[in-house]
Structures are given as structure tokens and as C-alpha cells.
Simulated scan of single mutants.
Amino acid sequence: MEEWTIEINRSATKKEKPNTDQLEFGRVFTDHMFIMDYSVPLGWHDARIIPYQPFSIDPSAMTFHYGQSVFEGLKAYYTPEGNIQLFRPEKNMQRLNRSNDRLCIPPIDEAFVLQAIKQLVYLDKDWIPTAEGTSLYIRPFIISTEPFIGVAPSHQYRLIVILSPVGAYYKEGINPVKIAVENQYVRTVKGGTGEAKTGGNYAASLKAQELCSQKGFTQVLWLDGVEKKYIEEVGSMNVFFKINGKVYTPALNGSILEGVTRNSVIQLLQHWNVPVIEERISMEVLYQAYLDGSLEEAFGTGTAAVISPIGQLSWEDKDLYINDGKTGKISRDLYNTLTRIQYGKEKDPFGWIDIVNEANAVKQ
């Protein structure tokens, strides 16, 4: 593949853009999308930006039958000066390749795909909303497309990138959410696909999520799949707890997704000289910290919500009301600092921001 060679077919008609005060998460999509195909003889090839549209795929395509797929999620933001910013996109490309490796999908050229994303975002830059808390969500994903009903890695794949203007992921915003600790169902185990960003992990979580939603909870807190006692993730987010002035988060163990926001939060807390400890945390230990008053805050971290404070945990018929159900100082400071860096309102001391402009987006 020639470097930065992307064929562009611009849309002849433009879609009507939604009102920014009516944005839902992941319901509306922009005018264009990026596609690239893979085959064994050619490798990754035929990189192109085309009008957003359905595409034809064989009913026997392996992705439908054996779930060989991976995806990523990142955002583009407008700054007050009118610049377009991405937040640590190289980390998403690295994680996409780690997921690829786990699912036996050929690796992508990380620099090339990031360049394609920049070009797509720049082409559809008018879709980036400017209202407070809004952004352009970027969803790269790869599916296996070989028409073959046989359990084996596919020989054909398609990479697609689509864009969606979004508002807040949770209607609660930065206000605390109610979380149910899951004791019956299992999302994944060490040695499984938990550390990869693949659709099967999320499919496995839907039943528990549906049941907890019926009971008025926003998300599920997953415990380990073997002993069902050690904390892993909160729904689609990593999870943190502030206990006696120190911030704890479950150590990466092969079944927990390594979040970009998780990594950023750890770096930011260390920058603030707040002790951060990555270790295995049992629900029993957390409950004891709640009883003795040392559990000060809890929050989830992820690209979609950034920081989501946890005001209530329900575990084995016991309700833990954290920080009187209010957003804690660490949660609010993290949210404010991360979002201000993302939106270009605060200096970035870590080199996290990647600017998208005509000079670096359009290289043909």
C-alpha cells in the first residue's frame, strides 16, 4: 500500500444535522465513512472514503457466525479557537492491534489508519458539535468477511470507520450513578477475551445489564468470573475507589480492558501526587471500607462518559451510599481537568493532544 493513498468519493448530498441540544449517543452518523479491505494475497488495501451507506456482505460472512470482530472508540473535539483535537488516538490504534492479535485479525498500519481517521474527521468537520459536553465520536471496527461457515480465522476482513455527533453518554452526566454488583452472570475470565475490545464481551454483558436496568440501576459492576469476589469493571468502564486518601483500581489481569481514560487518570493522579494503587480488590474489602467510613469516592472511567461518579453500589442486598450520593472532589477534578484538556481549555502537560488540520489530515 502506498503511504497516505486514500481515494475519496464525496457525498453529493448532505444530511440534515441534528440540534445539539437533542443529541443522543450513537444515533446519528455523518456524511462519510472510511473503508479498507484485507485479503490474503493483497494484505490491507483499497483504502477509501465514501458516502455513509449500507454495504453488501455475504450471509455466510464469518463475522455473523463466529464473532471475529474488534472495535475502538475515541472522540474529536472543537476548541474555543476553532481547532479540532483528538485525545491520545495513538493509544486507541495500539489497543486495536492488541485486540486484533487476540482475535487472529491481521494487524493494521497504526499510523496509516490514524491518518485516515484524521482525513475523515476533517472532511466531516462541520459535524463536530460545539455545545458544552458534546463531541464527535469516532468508531473504527473490523469484521471478518470471508464467506465460509467453518471455525477458523477468516482470510478476508473489512475495516470501517464511522463518525457520530454525540452528547453525554449517561443522562446523569457528572452526577453519580447507581450500580448493581453482578453475582450471577460472568462477562469474561483471565485467558478469555476480556482484555480485547471485541463485540462478544459486550454481548455477554447484556443480560445482566438488562436486569439491572429494570431495577433502576445505570450499570453493572462485574466481579471476577472464577471466584466472583474480586472487582473487575463497571459496565463499559474501568473503575476506581478512593479509600483513606489513596486511589485504588483493579490491576490489569488479562480479563480487564486497558482503558485509555484509565491510563490517563492514573497519570493525572500521579501528577497531582495522589497515591494510586493497582491491585486486586475484593468486594468484601470494599464493603468493610464502606462500613468503617474510609471509602470516600468511587467512579468509572471511559471514553464515552470520561468520569462517571458512583453514588450507590448494591451488593448482596446491601446498599452502599458513597459520599452521601454526591460527586466527590477527585471525581470532579478529574472530569474537569480531562475535559478541559480535551477541549483545549487547559494546557496539556502530557502531550496527549493530537491536532487535526488541513496540513496533517489531507496527505494524498
Rank of each mutant, 00 (worst) to 15 (best):
T13Y: 05
D333I: 06
G259D: 06
P51A: 04
D21N: 15
I353E: 06
I322C: 05
P51M: 03
I50W: 00
P165Q: 08
R27Y: 11
G344K: 09
E182M: 02
N238G: 13
T134H: 01
V226Q: 15
F87L: 11
A111L: 13
V220G: 06
I160T: 14
S331N: 07
S308M: 10
N273P: 02
V186N: 03
N323K: 11
T249H: 02
A12P: 15
P80H: 09
I142S: 10
S39Q: 05
A76Y: 12
N238P: 10
G133Y: 01
K326H: 08
K345C: 04
L291Y: 13
T188K: 00
N238Y: 09
A251I: 12
I117V: 14
K242A: 08
Y248P: 03
Q115F: 12
I8V: 12
A76N: 10
K207I: 15
A203S: 04
F25S: 00
G302Q: 05
N357P: 02
G254F: 12
V121A: 10
K17W: 03
S60D: 03
S135G: 08
V113E: 09
K207R: 14
D317N: 11
I307H: 07
D348P: 09
P147V: 10
L295G: 06
V247C: 05
H155I: 07
L320V: 01
P54N: 15
I84K: 00
A289P: 14
H65T: 08
M62C: 14
Y38D: 00
G194H: 01
G191H: 13
S264Y: 12
N323M: 04
F148N: 15
T261C: 08
G245L: 07
R102S: 07
R98K: 09
L159K: 05
A180G: 06
A361I: 10
T261Y: 10
D46R: 15
Y335V: 01
S99Y: 05
R48C: 14
G328E: 09
I84L: 03
G82T: 08
A289V: 09
K229Q: 15
M1F: 10
A47K: 06
V265F: 06
L123Q: 06
I143M: 12
K14E: 15
Y248Q: 02
V177E: 00
S314V: 09
A61Y: 01
Y335Q: 03
V186F: 02
V356H: 06
G325Y: 01
T79Q: 04
I281Y: 03
I179L: 12
E233V: 05
Q94S: 13
E146F: 07
F112I: 11
K17Q: 15
V220K: 02
N97G: 05
I117M: 14
L86W: 06
P106T: 06
P18F: 01
G216R: 08
T337I: 05
A289Y: 10
S69K: 12
I174P: 00
I330P: 03
N19Q: 14
I353Q: 02
K14V: 13
F71N: 05
P250W: 03
G150K: 08
Q214V: 08
L120C: 12
C212N: 00
I281H: 01
